[in-house]
Amino acid sequence: MSKHSIIISNISKSYGNIKAVDDISLNVKKGELFGLIGSDGAGKTTLLRILTTLLLSDSGNAQIENFDVKNNYKNIRQIVGYMPGRFSLYEDLSVEENLNFFASIFNTTVAQNYDLIKDVYSYIEPFKKRRAGQLSGGMKQKLALSCALIHKPKVLFLDEPTTGVDAVSRKEFWGMLKNLQKKDITIMVSTPYMDEAGLCDRISLMQNGKFMETDTPENIINKFQKQIYSIKSKNKQKLIKDLRKYKQTYSANIFGQAIHYIDKRNNIKIDELKNHLKSENHIDIEIKAVKPNIEDCFIELMKKEQSAVTNQLKN
């Protein structure tokens, strides 16, 4: 038996001239919580639809629990759960009816797998007579997850389950995923929120149909070569403009209250930078070295990709 739950080998898929998924390979271990991190149009949904046998790739192949996505699609559908990005349950059926419907499709009952869904379903069980269309966003999300779990899948695919969901509900949702992982379910989840990357065992940072990087969040951060300085001053809007104009600036991006600054030089003199900002009339200047986060890494990798494309065009 393979120790991998998901094996992806050189999968590609194009729509016209657009390469939605561009020669992607990846192995996901059994029981792993794997994150696809990327913005809209990166190719996350296309990849998830290929893996759930809803879409055929142009080339390459993939196995889910040793079943081939092209030849054994019926077997795969029995053992995977899929929560699509768009709410796709029956709005005119009640919460309970939706759940019973999905259970009966998979030849099981809600009672049989109640233990598995309890953690998620308990939030919405008080509203089980309510029609799905009448639920709030966070409740719909929990119902969709309950329905995706009702046949006790070995692998769970979730397409942007937390998009448009507030920070509190997002925290709750990730808590539920962590609990499911303990029940031996392999989970692949996509998200545009960079701060959710740290909650996954491993992640791929995805852009333009490609994985820019695949590793644990810690390793991706440790691979970041450049030193980041977090800079604040009284006038943030002026600060970002002045830093972008500064001749030694490699990059300057807003991160919350501060600017994340990277210098072109390897050894920078903080006093020199501080004096420069003083000469631009900044007050209350604070400069401190900080560790990068996943978003810093994503921005840096995007920059590299873009300059690689520009160089290709030049040559």
Binding site: G38, D40, T163, G164, P192, M194, F298, M302, K303
Partner: peptide, 16 residues
């Protein structure tokens, strides 16, 4: 009303 959902971190900053 939630203007920046789903875009990459560079584009999001350009929007700001």
């Amino acid at each position: 009303d939630e203007p920046t959902g789903g875009v990459d971190p560079i584009t999001r900053r350009q929007f700001w």
